[in-house]
Computed example of a mutant assay.
Amino acid sequence: MPTWDEKQYLKFADERTRPARELLGRVPLAAPRYVVDLGCGPGNSTALLAERWPEARITGVDSSAEMLARARLDLPGLEWVQADLAQWQPGTAPDLIFANAVMQWLPDHPALLPRLFDLLAPGGVLAVQVPDNFDEPSHVWMRSLPGSWSETLASVRQGPRVLRAGHYYDLLAPLASTVDIWGTRYEHVMTDAAAIVEWVKGTGLRPYLEALPAAQRDSYQQAYLAAIEQAYPPRADGRRLFSFPRLFFVAQR
């Protein structure tokens, strides 16, 4: 996992929180007693859960001490736990495990998703949103940008951990009473190509930058920016559309 910078991540807080709102809107629970925000980050998604269910016990779980420090600062009344998300085990069975934009960082979804589902209380819900942008230009260029850094970054390049919608359905449908699954492609209006680079520096680009020696980072970023300039051309008003597909699924026990 990369080292997280909550300030960089929250530069686009509204855009990053919008999918969490849409995922939450499809959770079919009236009054859950215990809610877990798995991969809570700086707490922007956890705040939505607390707003919807103010009487619930809510726990935010993340592997990043930096992200949790910001979450504790903004939402001191909630419970925050630092843990390895792939191995996390709750002390009490949750009524909701909410996982917004975190599963793409975790391995072995065919084993992980059924394990998480099995942790739920009877009638509980697993709600997941995951970026589905492995084949988008923003991510293709991260791992295939030609240059002196290619050999160094070879170890960062990995196959997509995000499965197809049908695979997730087949994993959860035999276990669940209902599975709601859908995809959305957001078209984020960005001021310029540099803004797109700033966005991905908060998430997908971080492992690549961290793998490079300091002497190569600037040249890599300049080459990446040039590629993004071409991949996301200016629209009629000079702004860029940053196309961002996401996959959602909500499974109830």
Rank of each mutant, 00 (worst) to 15 (best):
A56R: 08
D118R: 14
P110Q: 13
G77R: 05
D62H: 04
A86F: 13
R57E: 14
A71Y: 01
Q89C: 12
P107K: 11
F98T: 03
R70K: 13
L78V: 02
R70H: 05
D74Q: 15
M67N: 01
D84K: 12
A56P: 00
L106V: 04
A93D: 11
D95Q: 12
G60E: 00
L112V: 07
A71D: 03
E55H: 13
V81N: 01
G77T: 07
W105L: 02
F117E: 07
F117C: 05
L113D: 03
I58Q: 00
L112T: 06
H109T: 10
R115N: 11
D84V: 05
M67G: 01
D108W: 12
L113M: 15
Q87D: 15
A93C: 07
R115A: 14
S64I: 08
F117N: 10
P90A: 12
L119P: 09
G60R: 03
R72F: 00
L78P: 10
V61S: 04
Q89N: 12
S64D: 02
R115D: 09
G91H: 12
R72D: 02
F117H: 14
L116C: 09
P76K: 03
V81A: 04
Q82R: 15
L116P: 13
R57C: 11
L106K: 07
E79R: 14
R115L: 05
P94V: 06
R70L: 14
L106H: 04
L113K: 01
I58Y: 03
P94A: 09
L113Y: 06
P107T: 08
M67V: 01
A101P: 07
S64L: 06
G60Y: 03
R72L: 00
D95P: 03
R70A: 11
A83L: 03
L113R: 00
L116S: 04
R57T: 11
W80A: 04
M103F: 15
N100W: 05
R57Q: 12
G60P: 00
L106C: 04
H109S: 06
L112M: 08
V102P: 03
F98S: 02
A99W: 05
T92A: 13
M67L: 10
N100R: 09
L113N: 04
A111N: 14
I97P: 05
A111H: 14
M103S: 11
A71C: 00
P107F: 07
Q87S: 14
L75Q: 09
L120N: 06
P90F: 05
Q87M: 11
